[in-house]
Design a protein around this nucleic acid. Structure first.
Lengths: 144, 144
DNA sequence: TGTGATAGTCAAAAATTGTGACTAACTCAG
DNA sequence: CTGAGTTAGTCACAATTTTTGACTATCACA
């Protein structure tokens, strides 16, 4: 078996994404946030500590605002975020993390940070830094 | 705006995946394969030229075999793959790309190859090679 | 031979995504 | 100041996708 083709950049990206997500959500579950799923990640990943608009989250995550709106409904019911109208634009509503939401943000940053630290440790601090730097350059290059 | 946190490894991976997919499916559409969607990618990405079992595709892609079975139904109806019973194990069926399916495999490899070549050109051949190599090392490291 | 595991499929339920329409509020040219 | 066009968000409905459980056929192996 395993006569499969050498994985290209797309498959590498998918594997990395799944590997990171697997570890992240496992840790969130252990920390008592088992109700938070990958779906909610689209919001958490693009949510600032001081709040972000629904439409901005939609834009950043590349999903429809209806989908984001529904995920926010969910997170609101679970007590992770609250909605507050913006004062400068009364159409808009800020999605703001609650204390519980802030904890998820903190735990997520911590989990990702640990993964990165583990990789830096295994591959070499300098090697990993170059990797991270090149990764961002790759994304900049593909953004056109 | 844009006061968002520095994206971690997970967000980087997601962006890379989407960027690669965007370009890949755009090219497939231009080549007359507009009916092939990201959904089908789970099969094509793990399909060998000489055929692969449904369950092996499911294992490699991390999806349920029912889902893969349905995608294969789709691809079969579109004329991209055929099913053939294995001789060594009569329970199993090989999913085999048709000529049309082989063309998609070729176009996909070509598209990814061009993206990689473009990146190597922009960032430097040696820089990109190190990046690619480190990427695979990262995945090996996370596989544990 | 017979017990347990594996490959694949079917069918129904649940979850997620996409579409179109709608209200409210903002922008800005005239 | 006003009205046309745009944008933020939501609702309701349709379509798609995923999940769950059950089932048949086949294999592996003690």
């Amino acid at each position: 078996m395993s006569s499969h083709r050498r994985p290209g950049l797309g498959v590498l990206a998918a594997r990395l994404l799944f590997a990171v997500q697997d570890e992240l959500y496992e840790r969130l579950e252990l920390a008592g946030h088992g109700r938070v799923t990958r779906l909610h990640g689209a919001v958490f990943a693009h949510l600032d500590e001081d709040g972000t608009r629904t439409s901005e989250i939609a834009r950043r995550s590349g999903r429809h605002k209806q989908v984001i709106g529904r995920i926010v409904d969910d997170l609101e019911a679970l007590g992770y975020v609250a909605r507050r109208s913006e004062e400068t634009d009364r159409r808009a509503k800020l999605v703001i993390p609650t204390d519980r939401g802030l904890e998820v943000l903190r735990l997520s940053d911590e989990a990702i940070g640990e993964i990165e630290a583990r990789l830096a440790d295994a591959l070499g601090e300098d090697v990993y830094q170059v990797f991270d730097h090149t990764f961002r350059a790759v994304l900049d290059e593909l953004a056109d």
